[in-house]
Amino acid sequence: MSKTGQARVLTPEQFAHLLHVIQEHRYPEKNTALVQISFKLGLRVQEIALLQIKDVAELGPKSSGQRSFKLKEILALPAAYTKGADALKRSRSTYQRRRISFSVHDFHQLVQRIETMAKAGAEIKPEDFYPEVKKHRGKSRDLPMSDLALRTAIENHLAIRLEANPSVKKTDPLFLTQKGGPYSPNTLQEHVALMQRHWAGIERASSHSGRRTLMTNIIHEQKKSVKVAQKIAGHVSPSTTLIYEEPPEESLKEALRDAGYKYVG
């Protein structure tokens, strides 16, 4: 069953319009590169926020106040990037548990343990009996950067970065905010959504639209296997990738339109 509130899958026309309106705003090279990486490689917004220059390019030596670079053929995305900002200790997040569950066997053991502690007069704190939080494992993946528009966008962005500051380090963030600092996942999420919804006027588009558009294209348009989509998406389980097997909005619209032709009046 389709989930409500899913990110919009952009049509080729909407994507072209998005790229066009980006040129009418500040930092078009950076924003074009952001969008191209999202739609052509399917990176999560937190993965884009954590990208470093060394992930996409080799920096040359600084010479006469200038800095050269060579774009890589493969983006080798570390598994740690999928864990969000904490992977590089940029921010700390707090997690408040709202629901816990136990197997029948574990629950019986827990009750017996509490009974034993109560009889011994020991202090009992509920949080001491919570099951361990499952940590997100993440999954590394190698993504070929073969698309010409993608490569051109990244090259244009890097050229401007290096011209403005030839002393950048290879470990510096690939994308910087207007204030010159790294993006947090939340800030970048809002920025990518802003470009699509407000600049391009695409209803229900979000920071996840690029990833969902790519996965939908791979499965529905290219007819590739779920295994291929899973590898590109970096999903640990293929069941997660199956979410993208849902028909895109354009297919539903076409089906309803065709049905309407036969039932006129």
Rank of each mutant, 00 (worst) to 15 (best):
M1T: 14
T4C: 03
T4P: 03
R8Y: 10
L10M: 10
T11E: 06
T11Y: 13
H17D: 00
I22E: 03
E24K: 06
R26N: 13
P28V: 00
E29L: 09
K30N: 05
N31A: 01
N31Y: 01
L34I: 07
L34E: 10
I37M: 13
I37K: 05
I37P: 02
F39T: 12
L43A: 07
L43M: 12
V45W: 04
V45F: 03
E47Y: 03
I48H: 02
A49P: 04
L50S: 08
L51D: 11
D55N: 08
A57D: 05
E58W: 09
L59R: 08
L59H: 02
L59F: 01
K62E: 15
S64G: 10
S64T: 06
G65L: 03
G65S: 01
S68G: 10
L71D: 05
L71C: 06
L71N: 03
K72R: 14
I74C: 06
L77A: 11
L77P: 00
P78D: 01
A79K: 15
A79V: 07
G84H: 07
A85R: 14
D86Y: 07
L88N: 09
S91N: 11
S93R: 14
Y95D: 05
Y95P: 00
R97D: 13
R98C: 15
R98T: 15
R99L: 08
I100F: 05
F102D: 04
D106R: 07
V111T: 09
R113G: 04
I114A: 03
I114K: 11
K119S: 15
A120G: 08
G121C: 01
A122G: 08
A122N: 11
K125D: 15
P126D: 12
E127V: 09
D128I: 00
Y130V: 15
K135P: 00
H136E: 04
R137H: 03
K139N: 05
K139L: 10
D142G: 06
L143V: 04
M145E: 02
D147W: 03
L148P: 07
T152W: 07
E155T: 14
N156R: 13
N156Y: 02
H157M: 10
H157T: 00
I160A: 12
E163T: 05
N165M: 09
N165K: 10
P166A: 11
T177D: 10
G181D: 14
P182Q: 03
Y183K: 01
Y183T: 06
P185L: 05
N186V: 10
L188P: 02
H191A: 10
H191I: 09
V192D: 00
L194H: 09
Q196I: 12
H198C: 08
A200R: 13
A200G: 02
G201Q: 11
I202S: 01
I202P: 00
E203D: 13
S207P: 00
S209L: 06
G210N: 11
R211S: 07
R211F: 00
L214G: 08
L214P: 01
M215I: 14
N217F: 14
N217G: 11
I219M: 15
I219E: 15
K223S: 05
K223R: 11
S225Y: 08
K227D: 12
V228E: 10
A233I: 04
V236I: 11
S237L: 14
T240C: 06
T241V: 05
L242G: 05
E249H: 15
E250W: 15
E250M: 15
E254D: 09
L256Q: 08
L256K: 11
L256W: 12
L256V: 14
A259W: 15
A259N: 15
G265V: 13
